[in-house]
Design a protein around this nucleic acid. Structure first.
Lengths: 201, 201
DNA sequence: TTGCTTTTGACAGTTACTCTCATTTCATGG
DNA sequence: CCATGAAATGAGAGTAACTGTCAAAAGCAA
């Protein structure tokens, strides 16, 4: 994915970053998000609290940094032009999920479980999702040769993301396990439903 | 809307609550959300900071308490059973907006402007919106005589809320004015589009 | 007025985050 | 290999959003 860092400095930075993230995730899982303080994370990762904030602007960001979205958008963009929008998104999704290494998959799973379980994180994830709507809308419009802020492209994007969102395991209920293969099937089914026309009117 | 409180105690509480909210909104508008401290709000409303937190669990909640959603859901539920879901939502929306007093409308406008302009608030508003998805899904299912967690009802609800969300003035862009009559027309147009079938495939 | 309950304010403590400054750690040209 | 500049780190002080406790004040009811 990312080009291997050359200098020693870069390598150290990457290591530190990874260490902070790993210990943070572990502690969150062990004791809960709210119960884990930044100081504890810093201690575990053997850095000072100052350094923690140099790597992640907020405690939330440790779990929220997401590199999947961008990849997905690119995959949509790469679909042949004659494929209609929702179908393109579906294919892109399958492609990205299939290409994901088991470790990445596992990591994403842990991340999702955490984020979905903590209301504050959930909220910020939704924010990312609206950003995703913007990007999806732009791609849909682009593929159709429309201006990037085209109204119906936005509505389509919104409906798509909303449909996907509705299918994600919702908080509160209790048994949150992150996105499982079963969830993935539900995601695809939701898109199919949207494509074939909802029972709306 | 709400039954007039009887005892002196109740009246005082309502007054205090209103005062805190009003001063908070004013200060937020004047100096910005982040620049306004809870202490300042408490000072302006002539209560102690302790009291502030007794009335509102967090600083965010001063602007986030929303009583429109519940009304909307009820309005949807009140539509005749033969009206298809998205159409029912559309009618309910029109009804609720039409019934809103000018003061309520103005207040909502100020509130929306604030919320949409501040990322943290925006995020939490989205959280409320997903709760709305849940409720909308339940109503849709209920109207169709399906179990309240029916899959296609959820997808429909998600797509609907997502479409509406996509049409709201997005942050970042700059000129946020809250929901205007123009925005309302856009909301209706989005629903029409969704009903008539999106250019999806 | 006299008790009882609710509301309030003062205060101390925790935690996430910000800023500043001195020290250490790496990179590099000689 | 070393001197010099740049970048990363740690320490510490400060702010602001909360939380919990306790005693004083205000409404209520007899």
């Amino acid at each position: 994915m990312t080009a291997p860092p050359t200098s020693l400095r870069e390598r150290k930075k990457a290591k530190t970053r990874a260490a902070i993230r790993e210990h943070a995730m572990r502690l969150f899982e062990e004791q809960g998000y709210a119960q884990t303080t930044v100081d504890q994370i810093a201690d575990a990762a053997e850095v000072s609290p100052s350094t923690f904030f140099r790597y992640f602007p907020t405690k939330e960001d440790v779990v929220l940094i997401d590199d999947v979205d961008a990849v997905l958008i690119d995959a949509v963009r790469a679909q042949p032009a004659e494929v209609p929008p929702v179908e393109a998104i579906r294919r892109a999704m399958r492609q990205v999920f299939d290409d994901m290494s088991p470790e990445t998959w596992e990591f994403e799973r842990r991340r999702q479980r955490l984020v979905l379980g903590v209301p504050e994180l959930r909220a910020r994830m939704l924010q990312q999702m609206t950003d995703a709507i913007d990007m999806v809308a732009a791609v849909i419009a682009e593929r159709a040769g429309l201006p990037s802020d085209d109204f119906s492209a936005r509505v389509t994007a919104g409906a798509t993301v909303g449909a996907l969102l509705a299918v994600l395991p919702s908080g509160g209920v209790g048994h949150i396990e992150g996105v499982t293969p079963g969830d993935y099937q539900r995601l695809e089914k939701a898109l199919t439903l949207l494509q074939d026309g909802l029972p709306l009117g």
